[in-house]
Design a protein around this nucleic acid. Structure first.
Length: 138
DNA sequence: GCCAACGTTGGC
DNA sequence: GCCAACGTTGGC
């Protein structure tokens, strides 16, 4: 199983909004970045990820799951853009802030720390374990 | 609100 | 195919 990190601005679409969507989840549309799109194409149904709040909070807030694999982005007719559906699994007991990630030596290679602008990022198995530990998830 | 970093666009 | 200019993102 692969792990991913999804970024969003909570005042636009945040964790609470995703939770409100329930098991149906939400189409992660609007991504107009090739790297992010390529990452989404790699996703398999059932892959896990974290939702990260940018600007406000700057923290990972909860665990999400890929509910549907890449399909055309319904918000555009441009064939280049695809997106996946994700749903909320459960919130982290402790949110993991960007400062914590930066301060954690085992996360020094995390994409979030080095390229905070990429909106959909891969997380390695090792990084995931550290994040779960920091997040208070057994 | 500012500005640095990055990605994309378009002229050559 | 290169690179300057531009727009956007996101941390501060």
């Amino acid at each position: 199983m692969a792990y991913w990190l999804f970024k969003s601005e909570p005042n636009v679409f945040g964790w609470d909004d995703l939770v409100a969507k329930g098991d149906a989840g939400e189409e992660w549309d609007g991504v107009r970045n090739y790297q992010a799109r390529n990452n989404m194409r790699e996703m398999k149904k059932g892959d896990r990820g974290l939702l990260y709040h940018s600007n406000i909070g700057k923290e990972c807030v909860g665990i999400v799951e890929v509910a549907a694999e890449a399909h055309p982005d319904s918000t555009t007719d441009d064939k280049r853009w695809e997106c996946v559906d994700i749903k909320a699994v459960k919130p982290l007991k402790n949110t993991v802030t960007l400062d914590q990630a930066k301060a954690e030596p085992r996360l020094k290679d995390m994409v979030l720390v080095n390229n905070s602008r990429l909106s959909v990022q891969p997380i390695s198995d090792d990084e995931w374990k550290v994040l779960m530990e920091l997040g208070g998830v057994e």
